[in-house]
Amino acid sequence: MARRNRIVYGAVVAASALVLTACGGDGDSAEDDEIAGVQTPTEESEPEESADPEPTEEPEDGRPEIDLGPDFENVYEDELTGDPVVDAAIGDLQGFQDAVAEAIVTHETNRPALRYFIAGEALNQVITMMDGVHEDGLTSTGTARYYNQSVNLVDDASATFSFCRDFREVATVDFTTRELVEEADATAAPSLYTGRLELNDLGVWQTVGYDLESDSQSC
């Protein structure tokens, strides 16, 4: 049964093909809720405290909430292995995918999850990629599917990983206007990601490096 991470971030859409195919530097390029206006307080009424639009509650384990909006989802097709250490690493690897998607969806690189699940050279890659994406004014909508997820422990604090990403159900849209820029390509070949995880002092398996192979025959 597929494991789903849904996104519920009202005024913004999702990141998809753009999000992680672009991350490797040579990948493929990655609706329309109206943003509510700002109400100006009158002289007869005092301004109300504005509600925090971001998720404020954290899970009991202290991990940041990830919120991707109503128009996109990451779907993880694989079952967990039953090995608690490997499964924890796989869960944090999925956190890497979702954190990047959230940053793309919101056009913000200061989201807590980004630096929670990603560090080192991988974080530099993601930030550089997102600067370009934000400058282009693009985002995506649809469903990205992940499968063949594999984590191999190197030692107690490091591991290698690989997974495949299917973005055939992803369309590219303009972030501001929500106009369709490129339709989903039902014939698009999947991408293969490989990389390295390291366990930090908080017990999080952070993605510290990764590579992307577009149109991978290995998937």
Score class of each variant (00 low, 15 high):
Met129Ile: 01
Ala113Asn: 01
Asp156Thr: 12
Asp155Thr: 12
Gly195Leu: 07
Ala103Tyr: 00
Arg115Glu: 09
Arg111Thr: 03
Val170Ile: 07
Asp131Met: 07
Phe175Gln: 12
His134Thr: 10
Asp83Ile: 06
Arg115Cys: 00
Thr109Arg: 02
Tyr147Cys: 10
Phe96Glu: 05
Arg145Leu: 08
Ala157Thr: 14
Arg178Asp: 08
Ile127His: 02
Gly142Asn: 05
Val105Ser: 02
Asp185Glu: 14
Phe117Glu: 01
Ala186Gly: 13
Glu79His: 08
Val151Glu: 13
Pro84Asn: 05
Leu123Ser: 07
Ala122Asp: 07
Glu121Gln: 13
Ala103Gly: 05
Val181Ile: 14
Gln94Ala: 02
Ser191Lys: 05
Pro84Met: 02
Val173Ile: 14
Phe163Glu: 02
Ala186Arg: 14
Asp87Arg: 01
Asp166His: 01
Asp83Asn: 09
Tyr147Ser: 11
Gly137Pro: 13
Glu182Arg: 15
Arg178Cys: 07
Arg165Lys: 12
Ala119Glu: 01
Phe163Tyr: 15
Tyr146Leu: 14
Asp156Ser: 14
Gln125Arg: 12
Thr106Gly: 01
Thr106Ser: 09
Gly120Leu: 04
Tyr116Arg: 11
Met129Gly: 05
Ala89Lys: 06
Phe163Gly: 00
Asp87Leu: 03
Glu108Ala: 14
Asp174Asn: 15
Glu179Ile: 04
Leu202Glu: 13
Arg178Glu: 06
Phe175Ser: 10
Tyr193Asn: 11
